[in-house]
Design a binder for these strands. Structure first.
Lengths: 136, 136
DNA sequence: CGGATATCAGTGTAACTGAAATAA
DNA sequence: CTTATTTCAGTTGCACTGATATCC
């Protein structure tokens, strides 16, 4: 049953990612936010939440943690004083590179039984399923 | 990123299944237990939990619910008085058929964007990933 | 005013843990 | 004595909601 298989496969995926990131005291949301900031540049917390699919409340907490570690800076937006502008720091970029390398190894471990061409096929099929159910 | 795609695809899968079963006041664990009982015959709760990957505590509660609805019966095992023998009833089998039909439609909705041959490929690739990480 | 933002406290759920009672 | 089973109470992690203050 496909729905069962998807959940069974998502389980080790989640575990491998969580464990791998925990080894460097990181979390999925850390990677998501740092990635988004690296791609899109300084952003408001609401924008970050929308981009990453993370709840507004959880963005607050994640930005708190990343701020403590010096990976991002949070400053009021002079152009719109409701907003905080979150900016990735140099240390944040270095940390992001570390996380990316770690995650690459984890993808490899996750898809170990599949050849490269099969991994591509899987990614393509999953993408179509995900796209079909996007925001619906 | 494959791990992300897997989680994104598992999300609508989980939602569709949960919603579809909720319409008949059922739950994933209801289907899992009834299915296991239909396949393997009367079983102890510990066996059911191991088979279905459901925690021993949750088996207790699920059997409670199925008992109230008359879909299973719980009786002490005379051969091993630590155990309860859980048996599926005739109404339980009828209910299982309903759930199976419902779940078949849900699989179809989940994989709507894929052709039958593509669905097979997806299932095969996922199976290999799941097998590779089994019980590890 | 309506709408957006950030924050915090609290809710709901699902998976799990610990301990007790019973019995192999 | 050790291990297994069932049960219940409680915990934890997580996504989310509601309310509030602030501002466009």
């Amino acid at each position: 049953m496909p729905s069962w298989l998807l959940n069974q496969a998502a389980m080790p995926a989640q575990r491998l990612v969580a464990d791998g990131l925990a080894q460097v005291a990181a979390h999925r949301s850390h990677f998501a936010l740092l990635s988004a900031l690296d791609e899109a540049g300084p952003s408001s917390q609401a924008d970050l939440g929308r981009r990453c699919g993370i709840d507004r409340s959880d963005v607050v907490e994640t930005v708190n943690q990343l701020t403590v570690k010096g990976y991002v800076e949070r400053a009021p937006d002079p152009a719109d004083r409701r907003r905080n502008v979150v900016t990735i720091s140099r240390a944040g970029r270095r940390h992001l590179v570390r996380l990316e390398k770690r995650l690459a190894r984890i993808q490899d471990e996750l898809l170990a039984p599949l050849r490269p061409s099969e991994r591509e096929v899987l990614v393509r099929l999953l993408s179509r399923v995900v796209d079909h159910h996007a925001d619906g």
